[in-house]
Design a protein around this nucleic acid. Structure first.
Lengths: 247, 247
DNA sequence: CGGAATCACTTGTCCGAACAAGTCGATGAC
DNA sequence: GTCATCGACTTGTTCGGACAAGTGATTCCG
């Protein structure tokens, strides 16, 4: 059951997308929206705050809100699940486990998963394709309490996120993403069918439960030219941060 | 004059950063914060909403909020200005214009800057260094109404954003960033002192005024290993979106 | 004509109340 | 010991009001 402000936000997104409020144009005032949707001004403000946060509209005190762009927003589930993302685009995704084994946690694992070095973790290497071409190499390190469930998945499971939700109700709730570019090493090159030293877009991420408990950390490497990532930033809300080094 | 909810958000950030609320631990309840800061519950909610949006805390109905991490947040100004970012880190940034000329807008320029193909634009090529090493190649295309002000800047101006603000009060308010990895071409390689084909992290961006008017679009290329970008994503707020192709 | 002043309008902030939806810990039953 | 239930507590939603801060259009004056 969606909250009223979420419904209104969704209706406004659709209205923007079909050009009812064109890019560069203005939205109705809060008072008008309040009357149209028969809700209080506070509820309208919550709805438009969501659109502001995702960079779809711009807002300044005293001035009508303006439409900044036709952003396709994406849920965390869709970002997190390659298969789900591909499906939403009408593309065919494949996923295959190349290697899976338990090992002692390194210092890096320990830091990222909030465990002790030497504790057991499960390492999984997957290659993912889009319309038959290898696109992404995924290296996941799962905390031990997740290992059993992951090992039960079939090797050609396309959506790990979906399967874990259905299997044990696991919700992947928060993810910290670090983005940089690296050169393909020998293994990357072979598995992704590119030249050694080719540019790869690397996304490293720690994912946690709704209560903040780390589930896994991962290192994804995309073949250059196959996938890009977008973020809207503004004075009011700036999700993207630059940092020195590969971090 | 900062709003009260912004002040409270900043105090909470500082409290988290100094370990008063450790990662994995909980924050005080809304009722407690409301009493402590002598504000209404609504104002507390606004403050913690900002921290939630930046991925610093996690929030679930019925459960105490949890601290997810010690994120260093970054303003849009800092993201937008390489020099300001470096200065905030205590590093030395340099910036030098290698080329600057007016030309007719391409179809891509026209689309991004909302002008007509063939309209005049100003193209600027800059190289930026960090502690003496070349790190970033910046290609900016400014709309004609910005060209005069940009041309007035000195060629070794370190912070274009700051200079334009001081010169004409120009505020860079919104930016849509597209991130991927590309191989260094001959020019890139020469200017950044890397090998041809080396991986570069590419950030393309359109920047607009507070009213949504496009100021410039740019193509930044970072040497691999020098800079990375972070974004926090969650079920509640997912700023990062994946898309197929280099876009 | 250009710049300043004015005014109607618009968004931002803060308050407080009421109710809904969910968590978590304690307790009791098996 | 495990599981279910309950109650206290916590966060999410919605309402409505009042005031502050700012924009943009119009008007006035030099």
């Amino acid at each position: 059951m969606a909250a009223r402000h979420e419904e209104i936000a969704e209706e406004l997104r659709r209205a923007i997308d079909r050009g009812e409020y064109p890019v560069g144009g203005t939205l109705p005032t809060e008072t008008e929206l309040s009357a149209r949707y028969e809700v209080s001004r506070g509820t309208v403000r919550q709805a438009v705050a969501a659109l502001t946060a995702e960079g779809r509209i711009g807002s300044r005190q005293g001035a009508r809100r303006v439409v900044l762009g036709n952003r396709r927003s994406q849920s965390f589930a869709e970002l997190r699940s390659f298969a789900q993302w591909a499906r939403a685009m009408g593309r065919t995704a494949t996923g295959r486990v190349l290697d899976q084994h338990r090992r002692p946690a390194t210092a890096e694992d320990a830091e990222k998963l909030q465990i002790q070095p030497g504790d057991e973790v499960l390492q999984v290497l997957r290659v993912r394709g889009l319309d038959g071409e290898p696109v992404l190499l995924e290296r996941n390190v799962y905390a031990a309490w997740m290992a059993d469930s992951v090992e039960r998945l079939p090797a050609d499971c396309t959506s790990v996120v979906q399967a874990l939700f259905e299997d044990i109700g696991m919700i992947f709730a928060y993810g910290e993403h670090v983005i940089d570019a690296v050169a393909a090493g020998a293994e990357d090159a072979r598995l992704l069918e590119v030249r050694r030293g080719s540019p790869l877009l690397r996304i490293r991420r720690v994912t946690t439960t709704p209560a903040g408990r780390p589930i896994e950390w991962s290192d994804d490497r995309y073949v250059s030219g196959t996938v890009s990532f977008t973020v809207a930033n503004s004075i009011g809300s700036n999700p993207l941060a630059r940092q020195a080094g590969p971090a």
